[in-house]
Design a protein around this nucleic acid. Sequence first.
DNA 1: AAAACGTGGCT
DNA 2: TAGCCAAGTTT
Length: 357
Amino acid sequence: MKNTDPRESFSTALISWYLLNRRDLPWRENPTAYRVFMSEVMLQQTQASRVVPYYERWMKKFQDYSMVASACMDTLLLMWEGLGYYSRLHSLVNACKHIVKNHRGIFPSDYQEAISLPGVGPYTAGAVLSIAYNLPYPALDVNVKRVLARYCDIDAPVDRGPDALYRNKVLFFMPPGKAGTFNQSVMELGALCCLPRSPRCSECPVKGDCLALSRGSLEHRPRRVNRIHPRKRKILVAVILQNGNVFLRRRLKGGLWPGMWEFPHWEWDEDSGDEAVALQNFIFREHGMKPVFRNLLPSITCSYSGIRAIMVPFVFTLNTSQEIRGKDVYWSERSEIINMPIPSTHRKIADIVSFAR
DNA sequence: AAAACGTGGCT
DNA sequence: TAGCCAAGTTT
């Protein structure tokens, strides 16, 4: 007699498929709570393939919470550079400090304690507790929502409103004692098979019971409501040189690119006017320098959280008689720029500057 | 509740 | 090119 329990047929087929098809990702070897925690934070809003090199560098350098907690912030920022969402890093460091101080260096196995750690939300708490400790919590990310929205033909939007419906579905299907493997199976199906654009239904281990597939509603699952079209901006960037050194300033904690180094820049919202002069005035207001405009560098487009920007780099030189020093400003040698944590779009400009001639 | 927060690959 | 998308959390 074949098993016809809908819970078991889903999880059994899914786990069998997972054990055969899963990727050999580094955080899947020896999945201690520390290793899983570091990977889950890096993976937030990011694709696995992009995280791999960052994760391997991180694990080589930091083997436990106390090593992260005591590391130099610039070193940490440099290791995170390019991953984006830098507040994750600041939260992660604070979480590590908290675990060392209050949990004897052991990730808490209590859900409420876990979710109260900085940067740890429902997803990350569920992922660490299920994967590292095999505790029965959902790890509800967009992959899981997409798989369930299709398999159960759920119309509730995945990007707004309460998650209770989706969480209950996960718990309904979760087989006893296999929380970690089950959660990873659903996520992996979403990442490899139940893809956002063109799902590979012919390869799917649970296609036989997929409601969206049988009802023909696959195109409408998952349903989304939140669509923000990006606004355009033009940003004038100042590359100020003095004796061959490059002027950088450190951003404040909070907001965009917290704690990282950048070129001074000014958002340009006019239709016309002398951009170089406007930028020069800004530099004087902000930093008290009066550098001389020399030339332009190639413009760079970038986008982040609803903004599409074009960055226009202006090269200035500053007379040696003007001495500008300060806590959060720095004259970097060209060869040294590579060791400063700099956000991705500014890094492209920095590379031109540091490798020029 | 809605907006902020990065970045790069793909179509 | 412009839009969509990704192992979410915080305010």
